[in-house]
Design a binder for these strands. Structure first.
Length: 294
DNA sequence: AATAAATTCAACCGCGCTGTG
DNA sequence: CCACAGCGCGGTTGAATTTAT
């Protein structure tokens, strides 16, 4: 919890061009409440969003009768109040999925969260920082690179994730997969042949496992990262290549990483409308907002 | 029982991106 | 092309809680 403080936000910010722009009252926050939300505030926000829907966060607090900034409202809704937010312990299968997704995506918490129904980016980020990074370190694995901390030791050396980002310093999925397009709607792999099944399963229908497999398996992390990921890597490549072939006319090297190979068949995902993913436009792969009663 | 240290996680902050006029 | 508004993301903070001494 942050200490509720008087107005501290900057009234100005630098733009990408280096100029300054005057910030809106939303960010000035003069007289706005901070810190933990009360039940009354939660109710006000929930009721309003159920009535009017999400969005227009900047003006939402005023319309909803809240003395909060729009950012704060959005955060509270996204991380806590949304009906589809799953609370409670992260299950072992979810944990395994987070590990695998992190290995592929790095600290792209929103992307990772988008593939784990009911979990928020904040929750996953916290879980990673408080549990998983320590767990990996205790196993001799660098949580940033997913490679052994001591390269000269351990069988881990032979088990560097084959599908890990070849450049771990660059968590840029777009670069990582820049040679291919993956476009779900036109992918030749049938929706029914590729299912992402919670808990943590990405399976190909021919019986060949594809990386995000049986999360109930009790093998150590290093065991998980070998065979399964080779298959997974191959699968990804085939998907990408196939799709690249089909979409040669496309102009931008955009990919839909998570929606393409993690998002199939989840009840979480609505039909994938535009699966085009830009590294700078994660909206393309975000799961749909929770359905609210009209 | 009291206190200190460690851990957890909700919330905040700053930055960068996109859309619009 | 530029300025601005709005939004979303990742990193960080620090109060609350738990565990250790």
């Amino acid at each position: 919890m942050r200490k509720p403080a008087s107005s501290s936000a900057k009234a100005m910010k630098k733009t990408t061009a280096g100029t300054t722009t005057t910030k809106t009252p939303c960010c000035v926050k003069i007289g706005l409440k901070r810190g933990p939300w009360t039940a009354e505030e939660d109710e006000l926000l929930s009721n309003y969003i159920h009535r009017e829907g999400e969005g227009r966060w900047r003006t939402l607090p005023k319309r909803a009768g809240l003395l909060r900034c729009g950012k704060s409202c959005r955060l509270r809704w996204m991380n806590y109040l949304r009906p589809c937010v799953k609370r409670g312990q992260i299950a072992p299968d979810e944990e395994d999925l987070i590990l695998r997704l992190h290995r592929l995506l790095g600290n792209r918490w929103s992307l990772i969260a988008g593939r784990i129904p009911g979990r928020t980016d904040n929750e996953i980020k916290n879980y990673w920082n408080t549990h998983l990074s320590k767990k990996l370190i205790s196993q001799g694995i660098d949580p940033r690179t997913h490679k052994p901390l001591n390269p000269s030791s351990s069988k881990l050396n032979n088990c560097i994730p084959s599908c890990s980002n070849p450049n771990p310093e660059n968590n840029n999925v777009g670069d990582y997969f820049q040679n291919g397009y993956v476009h779900v709607q036109s992918a030749s792999i049938d929706h029914h042949h590729l299912q992402y099944q919670l808990p943590g399963t990405l399976a190909v229908n021919n019986g060949c496992s594809a990386g995000l497999l049986n999360n109930n398996q009790e093998e150590d992390y290093d065991m998980n990262c070998c065979n399964g990921d080779d298959v997974f890597s191959s699968f990804l490549n085939s998907l990408i290549n196939e799709e690249a072939h089909q979409n040669e006319q496309m102009a931008d090297p955009l990919v839909s990483i998570s929606s393409s190979f993690f998002g199939f068949g989840t009840s979480w995902e609505s039909p994938l409308v535009s699966s085009t993913f830009s590294q700078n436009d994660p909206k393309g792969v975000e799961p749909p907002a929770c359905t609210l009663p009209q």
